[in-house]
Amino acid sequence: MAGGPRLYVAQRLSALVLAPLVLVHLALILYAVQDGLSAEEILARTRGSLFWMLFYGLFVLAAALHASIGLRNIVAELTPWRGRSLGLAMHLFGLLLLLLGFRAVAAVTL
C-alpha cells in the first residue's frame, strides 16, 4: 500500500497552509473582476511584487504536495493500482504541478 505517516502529516499540513491561501485567492478574484478583467490590471498588481510572488509560490508548493498525495490515496482506494509505480507516477504528477505553477507565478510576477 502507498503512503505512510509522513505523507499523512504532509497532506494535513499542506491543507492547513492551503485553507487561508484559497480564501485570499477567492477574495482577490472577486475584487479583481469588479471593473472587468484585463491582463494589464492583473499584471500591474503582480509585476515586481515580492508579496504576490511569495503568496502564490507558497500556494503552488502546498497545492502540488496536497494534490499529489491526495490523488495517490484516491487511486489506491478506487483502482487496483498500488505500490512503487503509483508512488513514482504521483511524484511525477506533483513535480508537473510544481513546474507549471512556478512557471505561471514567474510569468505574472517577474
Binding site: M1, G3, G4, P5, L7, N73, A76, E77
Partner: peptide, 9 residues
C-alpha cells in the same frame, strides 16, 4: 496502525 491501510484510510 499508522499506515495507509491502517488508521489513515
Amino acid at each position: 496502525v499508522a499506515t495507509a491501510a491502517g488508521c489513515h484510510a
